[in-house]
Amino acid sequence: MLKDEIRILLTEPSCLIREGFQKITKEYSGKIKISFVESYDVFKSYIKSFEFDIIIINPSLINNNWKELVTLKKKYYKTKWIGLIYAYFDNNILNIFDSLITINDQKYTILDNIKNLGNQKVETKDKKNHYELSEREIDVLKLLSQGSSNKQIANKLNISIHTVISHRKNIVSKTGIKSVSGLTIYAVINKIIDLK
């Protein structure tokens, strides 16, 4: 499977809309693989068996299964959820979705919407698999292990304290090490600092 292919599951009873949607997505610049289902039950069995990057679903199919939908959304948190709207729904319901497509949307609005969510997918994937520190994070870690405070680091690297803190958060989440002395050991092992 191609890495940058966006896998979409469209859950929609109307064949007019399904086929219209497919036609629109053909104009998308990247690769899209789209699967269609017509009912909520089939939808549930699909998401159990296959991975999707984007799920588009018509909320009127969900009936009283909102709680279940929220649980599913938490379970498949990597997937982006779009509501396909052509009737009135309460805001509480609309807020469940990451994004919305409405029946009056222009073609390019729809494509942009998909593109945005599709790109987010690539970013999160990169983050998850990327344990190595960025160059800037290495600069911060170097100064941190040499005993510099946030303020000193900010001055030396010419960045704001806020940015230093955010780099530090990323360092902790990438290495899994919270204490400065622990991070110093990490820095020595990875030859970011030299003890001599």
Binding site: T175, G176, I177, K178, S179, S181, G182, I185, Y186, I189, N190
Partner: peptide, 15 residues
């Protein structure tokens, strides 16, 4: 607990 977990992490991942 944090430093203990750091030690665990270093021993499992980085040595």
């Amino acid at each position: 607990e944090d430093k203990l977990l750091d030690l665990k992490n270093i021993l499992l991942n980085y040595i």
